[in-house]
Design a protein around this nucleic acid. Sequence first.
DNA 1: TCCTGGCGATGACTTTTGTCACGGGCGAAA
DNA 2: TTTCGCCCGTGACAAAAGTCATCGCCAGGA
Lengths: 234, 234
Amino acid sequence: MKDGEAPKDKVTAIGRTLLFSGLTSGQLEELASHASERRLWKGEVLFVAGEEARGLFVVVQGAIRAFRGSGGREQVIHVEHTGATIGEMAVFDDGPYPATAAADEDSTVLFIGKHDFQQFLLNHPQVALSALKLLARRLRCHAELVESLSLREVGPRLARYLLAEARASGFRSGRGLQVELGLSNQQIAARVGTVREVVSRALSRLQQEGLVELDGRSLTIPDELSLEAFCQDC
Amino acid sequence: MKDGEAPKDKVTAIGRTLLFSGLTSGQLEELASHASERRLWKGEVLFVAGEEARGLFVVVQGAIRAFRGSGGREQVIHVEHTGATIGEMAVFDDGPYPATAAADEDSTVLFIGKHDFQQFLLNHPQVALSALKLLARRLRCHAELVESLSLREVGPRLARYLLAEARASGFRSGRGLQVELGLSNQQIAARVGTVREVVSRALSRLQQEGLVELDGRSLTIPDELSLEAFCQDC
DNA sequence: TCCTGGCGATGACTTTTGTCACGGGCGAAA
DNA sequence: TTTCGCCCGTGACAAAAGTCATCGCCAGGA
């Protein structure tokens, strides 16, 4: 159904990533020549936690989620959209992939083999600096996540998620900040670190308290500051 | 009391770290010339989460813990001992420190200013590769931690901690694997992500089940495999 | 049109965690 | 030696989180 959006050219896709931005088009083409494309259906698994790393992936189209936990419940660690990379860390230290990656929607990715990448890294040291920035940023997210999971209860965790989501992809209207929730309660639960039912209830409570308004899957935050306050003091 | 252990020479200390291992002694001295020493008492704070990063620290002696959470409860994210570095990520992307760092025991550290380090990084690209390895490794730990906090309950989390601790610094005797627990229940709780009392109870239960034997602060694991099994199926 | 599968809401419970309060042990400093 | 300050262990609760089961809605396929 998304055939209208022709997959970007390999080079453009690679150049968009934080990791490879700033390279000349010649360098990008060099990389692209080693990259192979792969399409994934929603839910298809790209690699599994613990598996030996074969290389890294560039998300050309769609979204890939990295998560842990096998049976039943899972915890999403991060989600990468178009123009991001996934599975990089594993190529830096030859270790196994730290999490399982699967397509959150129909996606297409580029694969760059570990050795090709490592070779490229040696020839183009500035990429290492981008990589450091990337990892540093990711580490910061993880620290946030750890704090949330350990120190905050579900209500505030959910509130934070909604706030972040709304700020990232919502829009302001007269009634407040609005977003279309792209995820099912199940998926939200996996991000926030709990289960479907608890998300459902927590959402209801936020509504009762007047902190959010929910109509179908579209959410309105009448007053950002109240919601923010609610995040803090729990 | 630890005066007998003269603080290692700056150069030796720096050379021991994963980040700077593999450098020539000339290069190490170059770095050392920019490093300033600082002593910390147990509990003293080195930097606070969110604070703008001034530079990174090399642990010469003692142990520094990085944690989040302010009032009352805290969650330890990682602990760095002699020959490790802390606060590095923040110098890679000019962001704030992601966690608060404080001395877990009386310690001495070396401080290397952000600009000095960044300059050094540009002149010695191989350090960037070490840095990538370091961050990748840390990321992997975080993923583990996130999974634990989100998907496992306290019992298994504690069991894993004990097992890891015992394997790292315990010794084998006829009665099994033995360790001296270096931490109070309070501290263990902060690592495992819960509170003092719960650790106390969980520990009792492990004892009742015969999975560990506790005598004062010295712990014996009669059968590693049983304990490991217990970690899994929860 | 009818069935079926996925999703959301919710009630009824159980289990796990966290909180408070108390008592006892132990070592360092007064 | 006596007094603090920590730290451990516990009981009694309270609250949060998770599990199970049910019901209604809706969309897509037969």
